[in-house]
Amino acid sequence: MIIPARSEESRNAAEIVAAEWSAVLSYGMDRINPAVPRAAYQHPSLRELWLMVSHGVLYLSRCTRWPWTSDVGTAYPQVAGGYRVRRASDKTLLGEVDTVEAAYKLIAATLPEGCGPAVDGTPDDL
């Protein structure tokens, strides 16, 4: 029996998210400090979210398609060291921390109410 290859459209959200995590975790310093996605990946609640990298910053979303959600905190590295953690949806400063591990612990602790695994869709599908 020949089993046809699964197309991107037939993959479920968990598979899509897992594949993107695998890709981002393999990025080198030219894209992002590898410690950043590794720190985020340590938190099961963050590991279920869609991720993307832009300008060396890791962004997390509750959906896999644009426009992504902006209600999950983002850790921005500071020139003097440490991280500033902000939530774009309401422009809230969640805190300033010394380490990348502390930044993602804070992000995991401040996830939106009812935040669950990312959905394969847009914010309208939440």
Score class of each variant (00 low, 15 high):
23 A>T: 12
38 R>A: 13
9 E>I: 06
18 A>M: 01
121 G>R: 12
103 A>N: 02
85 V>G: 00
78 Q>P: 00
108 A>Y: 11
116 G>A: 15
84 R>F: 00
43 H>N: 06
90 D>I: 06
65 R>I: 06
78 Q>W: 02
79 V>E: 15
103 A>C: 01
69 T>P: 04
8 E>P: 10
14 A>R: 14
116 G>N: 12
112 P>N: 11
100 V>W: 08
45 S>F: 05
113 E>A: 13
89 S>K: 09
41 Y>D: 13
23 A>K: 12
109 A>E: 15
81 G>A: 05
75 A>C: 09
101 E>I: 02
45 S>K: 14
69 T>L: 02
101 E>Y: 04
91 K>H: 12
30 D>N: 12
25 L>V: 08
17 V>G: 01
89 S>M: 03
58 L>M: 12
80 A>P: 00
114 G>N: 14
31 R>D: 13
49 L>W: 13
32 I>K: 06
100 V>N: 05
44 P>D: 14
97 V>P: 03
113 E>S: 12
28 G>S: 11
5 A>I: 04
57 V>A: 02
55 H>W: 13
81 G>F: 06
53 V>L: 05
22 S>W: 00
52 M>V: 08
126 L>H: 10
123 P>F: 03
66 W>K: 14
95 G>W: 10
32 I>H: 10
62 R>I: 07
28 G>W: 11
112 P>L: 09
57 V>L: 03
35 A>T: 11
68 W>K: 00
58 L>G: 09
121 G>P: 12
124 D>M: 03
8 E>I: 07
116 G>F: 08
59 Y>H: 15
116 G>Y: 09
84 R>A: 07
2 I>R: 14
122 T>K: 15
104 Y>A: 01
1 M>Q: 11
10 S>G: 03
14 A>H: 09
45 S>L: 12
96 E>L: 00
56 G>S: 12
107 I>T: 10
46 L>E: 09
24 V>K: 01
86 R>N: 08
106 L>S: 04
41 Y>G: 00
18 A>N: 07
40 A>P: 08
11 R>I: 01
89 S>G: 00
113 E>Q: 15
110 T>V: 04
9 E>A: 14
92 T>F: 02
22 S>V: 00
103 A>L: 02
57 V>Q: 10
29 M>G: 08
65 R>H: 14
49 L>C: 12
21 W>P: 02
61 S>Y: 11
99 T>F: 08
35 A>Y: 06
52 M>S: 15
60 L>R: 06
47 R>H: 14
75 A>F: 05
67 P>G: 02
118 A>G: 06
77 P>V: 03
111 L>N: 13
118 A>W: 11
11 R>T: 07
41 Y>P: 00
72 V>S: 05
7 S>P: 00
119 V>D: 04
74 T>V: 15
37 P>L: 00
27 Y>R: 03
92 T>W: 04
57 V>E: 12
110 T>D: 11
12 N>H: 09
105 K>N: 10
44 P>V: 09
46 L>A: 03
53 V>C: 05
72 V>E: 08
88 A>D: 12
13 A>T: 07
14 A>E: 15
102 A>R: 13
119 V>I: 15
52 M>R: 13
7 S>D: 07
14 A>G: 07
83 Y>I: 03
90 D>S: 10
65 R>V: 05
87 R>E: 13
